[in-house]
């Protein structure tokens, strides 16, 4: 269980890096950032492909997506100091509950 989980975390980190790069590229106007973003998202998917070797696709992808959203919320809070409203907090709770429920 340790290996897929750490791969998943690595993949989510690369996904967040890709988001940041694409944001910097401003809709692919700055090509270097756009290409860096593409490279990061492809690496993220390569890591994810090792995860789906022994975890069903639907589960792996939903946990990956959920962790991506959590990471984005966390980074936004730390880097850009943007906070979620009550609705967003309920959403975060739902995602965490979903990931925990997956482990049971």
């Amino acid at each position: 269980m340790i290996v897929p989980v750490s791969l998943l975390i690595g993949s989510v980190s690369l996904d967040l890096l890709a988001c940041y790069c694409v944001k910097r590229s401003k809709g692919f106007q700055k090509v270097i950032w756009g290409l860096a973003g593409l490279l990061a998202i492809i690496s993220a998917f390569v890591l994810l492909s090792f995860v789906v070797r022994d975890i069903p696709l639907g589960i792996a992808y939903s946990v990956w997506g959920g962790m991506g959203v959590l990471g984005t919320v966390l980074l936004d809070r730390m880097l850009f100091n943007s906070r979620l409203g009550r609705q967003g907090m309920i959403g975060v709770a739902c995602i965490v509950a979903g990931i925990v429920a997956m482990q049971l």
Binding site: G58, I59, S62, V63, G65, G66, V69, V73, D76, S82, L84, G85, Q87, G88, I90, G91, V92, A93, C94, I95, V96, A97, G98, I99, A101, M102
Partner: peptide, 16 residues
């Protein structure tokens, strides 16, 4: 669990 995460994702997305 997938449905729960989907709901959470929608809530967070529309909040932002």
């Amino acid at each position: 669990a997938i449905a729960l995460m989907l709901v959470g994702l929608l809530l967070v997305t529309f909040d932002k």
